[in-house]
């Protein structure tokens, strides 16, 4: 590493040492941006605290966590406060899923805007604490603190 650094042209080597480029020449711009950044953080924290205090006032009987897992994409987490008895009703509260009724119950086709591609043999698997549920989403009971995963899988 040191050999690589020493082999750099002089001005780049100086950059690395902070002598030429990395000086605080534009202090004013940096200070203004720091203020904007601070304002953004304060606003976001205020919205978050306000939203959560509202949730507490609502006093739902249960709060569940739903993870949407798609390979290659960041896992998304949804926290749902609900009085619903079954998972589908809680998911419908935030319009997280779409699908159709079948003889086996509700069949999920789309989660969070992502539709399972039948041509690629994809489907949405529902699991609870890492284990696939034995019941359909419309008949899976929920209790406070449950964590469910909706995973785009292939068969």
């Amino acid at each position: 590493m040191l050999v690589f650094l020493r082999s750099l042209p002089d001005h780049l080597w100086m950059n690395l040492q902070g002598k030429e480029v990395f000086y605080m020449k534009n202090k004013k711009i940096i200070i203004v941006f720091a203020l904007v950044f601070a304002l953004l953080i304060v606003s976001a924290v205020t919205v978050y605290v306000f939203a959560n205090s509202n949730d507490a006032d609502n006093k739902y009987a249960k709060t569940i966590t739903v993870l949407v897992v798609v390979e290659g994409r960041d896992t998304k987490t949804f926290t749902i406060g609900t009085d619903a008895e079954f998972l589908l009703d809680a998911l419908n509260q935030i319009e997280l899923v779409e699908g159709s009724e079948s003889i086996y119950g509700f069949f999920i086709t789309t989660v969070d805007g992502i539709t399972a591609n039948e041509n690629k043999q994809e489907w949405w698997a529902v699991s609870k604490d890492g284990e696939q549920t034995l019941t359909g989403v419309s008949s899976t009971p929920i209790k406070d603190g449950d964590t469910f995963e909706l995973t785009l899988s292939t068969y």
Binding site: N15, V21, F22, M24, K25, N26, I29, I30, F33, A34, V36, F37, L40
Partner: peptide, 14 residues
């Protein structure tokens, strides 16, 4: 043109 790591850390954070 501003090569300050602190500024860019704030930009990335924002």
């Amino acid at each position: 043109h501003i090569k300050s790591p602190v500024l860019w850390a704030m930009v990335a954070g924002a």
